[in-house]
């Protein structure tokens, strides 16, 4: 038997998949649960093939994939100085593209698609919401302007989002933490 079939393909990083379900009787942190951690391509697929598709989750649920050791929350030391590239999906995109966008995002992260900028990647979150689903890639350092822009451009290219029609914004977690109500945080960068 070829060694290729016996040896799993290692990933550059270990990743943890988290699932959030909005139970209002519990604290936010209690609703965020680790599902599994993996560090090979085969184990990534074993997990992905096993779980419910994002589009089939109830409103209020999230999937998050973060490097092992980083919690999917602003307050984590690896996240708090950074921000996120955020896509607010249109109604049509929610229906047609959510699952493919989410998978493409996962492939970008586990495959280290951002080259040397991949070190600044913390994770990704998909949020299923009645008002419109959201997809975001989180990075760790707001000061890394060049890296943030390269990540944004590469991400937009991988998702196949048309350049002039779709503008993607990057928001600092520090800004998101202090906004009131449903006002969106300002975009520090756009692509």
């Amino acid at each position: 038997i070829s060694p290729e079939l016996l040896i799993k393909h290692p990933l550059q990083n270990s990743w943890t998949l988290w699932f959030y379900k909005n139970d209002k009787q519990k604290q936010w942190e209690e609703n965020q649960r680790e599902i599994s951690t993996f560090d090979t391509v085969e184990d990534f697929w074993a997990l992905y093939n096993h779980i419910e598709a994002a589009s089939r989750l109830q409103s209020g649920c999230d999937y998050s994939l973060f490097k092992a050791g980083i919690k999917p929350m602003w307050e984590d030391t690896k996240n708090k100085s950074g921000g996120r590239w955020l896509i607010n999906l249109t109604r049509q995109q929610c229906i047609n593209d959510l699952d493919s966008y989410w998978l493409e995002t996962l492939l970008c992260l586990v495959g280290e698609a951002f080259d040397e900028q991949s070190d600044d990647i913390c994770g990704t979150v998909v949020q299923i919401r009645t008002k419109g689903d959201k997809l975001a890639v989180w990075t760790g350092d707001l000061r890394n302007n060049d890296g943030i822009l390269k990540i944004g451009m590469k991400y937009k290219e991988r998702l196949g989002l048309p350049n002039k029609v779709c503008v993607m914004g990057y928001q600092a977690h520090a800004d998101s933490m202090v906004i009131c109500g449903s006002m969106p945080a300002q975009n520090r960068f756009t692509v």
Binding site: Q12, V41, F44, W45, G111, A113, S118
Partner: peptide, 18 residues
């Protein structure tokens, strides 16, 4: 140092690997 990078098609090819 070296980085383990997988192209999109490489990851997809392994999706149904035993």
């Amino acid at each position: 140092g070296t980085r383990i990078i997988y192209e999109r098609h490489e990851l997809l090819q392994l999706r149904n690997s035993p």
